[in-house]
Amino acid sequence: MTALLLEARGLVQQYDTSRGLFGRATSVRAVDGVDLQVNRGEILGIVGESGSGKSTLGRMLLGLERPHDGQVLWQGQPLPAPYSAAWRSLRAQMQLIFQDPLAALDRRMTIADQIGEPFIIHGLAKGAEAMAKVAGLMARVGLRPDQAGRYPHELSGGQRQRVVIARALASSPRFIVCDEPVSALDVSIQAQVVNLLRDLQEQSDLTMVFISHDLKVVRNICDRVAVMYLGRIVEEGPSDVIFSDPRHPYTQALVSSIPKAGTGLSHRVILQGEPPNPAARPTGCAFHPRCGAADRACALEVPVLELNRGRLTACLKLRATGAQAA
């Protein structure tokens, strides 16, 4: 058995927008050619600024959106077309945890009913058996049994996210995408939910993709990290390697922004300018207008993702130095 669970090949997602009635239609590439492997039992972090295509990538990995180009292979097989019967039954194996738990829950249903819904949908259990399983799930995520009859608005933010997590775990999935699962929560609750996710992952050998812009959380939980900038992966490798020795200038700027106890922010790399508009993408390396190390070649050539000191990077400068070292 190969360790590969999910593989993305050349994923592209493109949205067409038109400006006004007679305006020229422009297309925005939210994700622009991403290759990614997710191994069984690992937690892969995807980090990047807002608008870098993290969430779109996550939705495509789950098959919730049909990619414009490229394909996603689940255990070697292409994902079925969205909303087909095969797609629906595959939902039991892959789940999504949402950023905003209040929006993801039906406000007119008790949380016990909502946690038990996957049992009914996939015909896994019913009646007393389903109720017992719901009680088990609630205990697993740390909800009290007396909260079963509550409605989502009667719970706190952290409790709601626990409900969402319990519902996602109900069908015993093998793969979970967490899309900014803690960014809507208080810092004190964040740690609890992150620890819960990690415990659950260890207990049931889950494979997770953890999408976040919060590097502290990602460093805490992930085995491997992919850094995205404007729809492309610019650096990918084991979490400890990336965070202790970032190579790509963008990753260096990101990692330097993590506050460390006892040190000032003197080493911080401050990025100039704003993230560019994905509809008007810079030529060459998309990061070059904000990059301190960029020269004229960076504006002309698009760097490809290639092996560099134990991780993958997409940067012309690094390729040059790597070649010199070799």
Partner: peptide
């Protein structure tokens, strides 16, 4: 809003 799409992605018809 999310609650409906959340149920759709659970696999509901």
């Amino acid at each position: 809003q999310g609650y409906a799409s959340a149920v759709v992605q659970l696999g509901a018809k």
